[in-house]
Design a protein around this nucleic acid. Sequence first.
DNA 1: GTTAGGG
DNA 2: CCCTAAC
Length: 669
Amino acid sequence: MVVKRRLNCGSNGFDFPNIPKAPRSSRRKVSIKRDDVESQISAIDLLASLAGKLLEESESSSTSNCAFEGDNHGHLGAEVKQELEDVYDKPCKSEFPHQGIPASKSTSDNTSETCLQISSLENDSIVEQTPVSDCKRARGLKPLLRCENKKGDCDFLVGSGGISEETSVVNVDAGFDQGEAINGLEEGGLTADTFSLKDPSQLHVQFPEPVHLDGDVKLPSGTDGVPNGSFAVYGNHSKLVCRDDDENYCKFYKFSDKCKSFRPLTRVGNRRIKKSVMKKYGRAVPRMKCFEDTRTDGCLKAFHRKRKLCYGYNPWKQETVHRKRRLSDKGLVVNSDGGLSSESVSNSPEKGESESGVFSAAVGLHSKDSRVKFSIKSFRIPELFIEVPETATVGSLKRTVMEAVTALLGDGIRIGVLVQGKKVRDDNNTLSQTGLSCRENLGNLGFTLEPDSEKLPVPLCSENPIISMPTDSSNLSERSAASPTLDSRIPFRLQDADHVINSENCMENNQELVPYQSDISADEQVSLDSRALVPVSALESKALAIVPVNEKPKRTDLSQRRTRRPFSVTEVEALVHAVEELGTGRWRDVKLRSFENASHRTYVDLKDKWKTLVHTASISPQQRRGEPVPQELLDRVLAAHRYWSQNQLKQNGKLQAAATMVVKTGSSM
DNA sequence: GTTAGGG
DNA sequence: CCCTAAC
């Protein structure tokens, strides 16, 4: 399944991370680990079973506005319909926090297409953590799945990772087999009697999975996520506390939070994985239009506007500028606009628990022996989007969701650390150096979940499924305009992506947390969207031909910057050596001589790096950032710089002299 | 296409 | 790392 390809690295005295010649933007890696798959499949099973029902339902209902308001199964009646309408009429209502995206009554949607949308992925956990960098390996994130029936615009939410008031209200009506749903719940570690089955518009199922971010990642085995789970509902929010065998405990929270509840879906990193096969009949659904329609609340629009502002942004410089920050009394909430994000707040986890608020990651403070302990309440990853044809089998749906989730989470998540709202770039700094001592206010600490852009799936030309990770549906029109003929089945196969992307495995420092990956992701996702998203117009057509994916969109709003790839010491060494010999004005030669196999290093990159090296060498060591460059190398940089500068001056002087000579001789003649 | 330099 | 002017 996972085809790995390693390119021979380096041939000029040191190893280069060898990158395939594929477009940089598409170099991403997907790694699906078998174990992960196994451990998550049970959760997916439930989803799939639900989806299967959903599919059946949507197929059997052809006329009703809402597939679930009909009486096909004798479940739903006017009452349910009214409830749905209430939801429509009152978006952002507190009783539908989080995933409570009210489905709008999109009149254009009159097809039988069914799609599943993983609206967010959450990981609720308590983290006792030591070095910040150890937080990188977050795993066990759980999908919160949103099933959307195209015909009726009914949303079914299959949530996990957090028991909430809405998740405690489980709808298994509307054609769902209640028993099956309950079975699924039990698989997820919950029993039926912990739920009241009311709300027809949403279905949440929990798959509690203890997650430990302390560097020793645990995944629950199989479906036994919560051996001794207990479930309690408190008025405004619910809590699930469970203990595992190791007496580690985890708590699952979710909080009622009106408009804020949209953030998981609409926030950056709003990644959707879309699977689509040409529908059997009926005109295609204006996919994205549908989504846009379903979110007419101001929150979303504001978000979209905000997102747009970031497109032209240069993360390489002042990454934090365009970031949305919100200070609360509990601390700083940072929404990384670049990607999957989480928020952090509160220096008192216990306090945070009792209050509703927008925070997923809370930071605790323990001052014993200068250790710092963090409690990460949850990470939330915005939606994935999956679209399947009615003819798809449940099994294929399972696989698709599994692939999508695994691809996203398998190795595709990085943790960013924010202090005072600023990304901490240097992984080598200690916490206290970073301002995170036990005496400091840890409320200023935050984490972000960021897609590992280098491992993100690459849209490729293939058959199915289609998986896309759009981040901003407001960009739709632009995308459509940019590539109106883009086929709706611009496809993506995880397997393909695997083998293309995994070639980055020989990247040195691959483990390094690339700062502000989210920045990149913001841009990259945009571009990804441009290729993977389905323009409305394209969907309308019945064209089946696969067209090249890499239609160069306008560089304007679809541009993406390359992933930042800090030069390793080895590379610096090679660069210095080459410049010493060739001088500072022959970057192409430098490239050819020492970086020919490093396809990701252009001669402009080398020139830029030299520029920064010279700068670095001329500042005090305290001011330097990033991976420290040996002073010896910096000395050589300065020496070479000086030498070649003088050389250039001499050259100029000679030229000047020669010129004047010419002038003189010319005038004297 | 390269180089240099500002952003 | 991007962009662009200049060559």
